Amino acid sequence: MEEEATTMDFSLLTDAIASKSYDKIADICDNLMLQVSAEGVNFQNDWPYAIHLLGHIYAGDINSARFVWKSMPLAIKENQPEVIAVWGIGQKLWTRDYAGVYEAIRSFDWSPQIQPIVAAFSDNYTKKMFQLLVAGYSTISVQDTALFLGMSEDDVTKYVLVEGWSLDSAARMFTVKKQSVTTEQKLDPSKLQRLTEYVFHLEH
């Protein structure tokens, strides 16, 4: 029995990653951490901190991600560049540096295990930002749209034109196509307020 207590069963986590159920990662890691802590196992060196952090970031729970980061041993923070890189994404989200989130994603060469989760997060994040822009603007500059969606101006133009926006080439402004709001797309007014403040900060 002693032997079993010291081995961690990561099969649930491995299965969740393999099946792209990234929204389950944070809960699986939290539960497993509580379990091994209760058993008195010294798990710190073997713990998948980067995945645990990324699980909370993927789920949009930055407070929990901060808690995981703060409770991490200093040796892990100093010796695992990928953990630091994941937290770099978390920091940008925490400070609402929307463009910085994409910079943090692009500025690290992610490991094969982490890369698909980061890519899925990036894709979801772009979709969320797009919904915020649709809800918050009737017109917006090409430059600001590119910043918010983490793309070049050419790529962002292609992306939003497919979504039905129109471009005034001379003014470099998009006219936003409003979508019929379904219950899923109801927007948190505080998010819209933060977005407006961010654009104001960009432009002044």
Rank of each mutant, 00 (worst) to 15 (best):
Pro73Arg: 13
Glu197Trp: 11
Ile17Tyr: 00
His52Gln: 12
Ile57Thr: 02
Gly90Met: 08
Glu163Ile: 05
Ala65Thr: 12
Arg96Pro: 15
His52Pro: 03
Glu103Pro: 06
Leu147Gly: 05
Ser190Gln: 11
Met151Lys: 06
Ser152Cys: 03
Phe121His: 10
Ile62Met: 06
Lys178Phe: 00
Asp144Asn: 15
Trp94Ala: 12
Phe200Cys: 09
Val36Met: 00
Leu54Asn: 09
Asp61Ile: 05
Asp27Pro: 00
Ile89Val: 14
Ile51Asn: 05
Gln179Leu: 01
Tyr125Val: 11
Glu153Lys: 05
Val160His: 05
Ile140Cys: 07
Thr95Tyr: 15
Lys128Gly: 02
His56Tyr: 14
Tyr198Trp: 09
Tyr198Glu: 08
Lys24Cys: 00
Asp154Arg: 11
Val176Asp: 12
Phe174Gly: 09
Leu161Arg: 13
Leu149Pro: 10
Ile51Asp: 08
Tyr137Leu: 12
Gln44Cys: 00
Ile89Tyr: 09
Phe121Trp: 02
Ser141Gln: 04
Ser190Glu: 15
Ile25Glu: 03
Tyr22Lys: 00
Thr196Cys: 00
Leu161Lys: 13
Glu153Pro: 00
Asn42Tyr: 04
Leu133Trp: 03
Leu93Arg: 14
Lys177Ala: 13
Leu133His: 01
Leu187His: 05
Trp87His: 04
Ile89Thr: 12
Pro73Tyr: 13
Tyr137Pro: 10
Asp46Gln: 09
Ala170Phe: 05
Ala104Ile: 04
Trp110Cys: 12
Glu184His: 14
Asn31Val: 02
Ile76Val: 14
Ser122Lys: 10
Ser21Gly: 03
Ala38Tyr: 02
Glu203Ser: 12
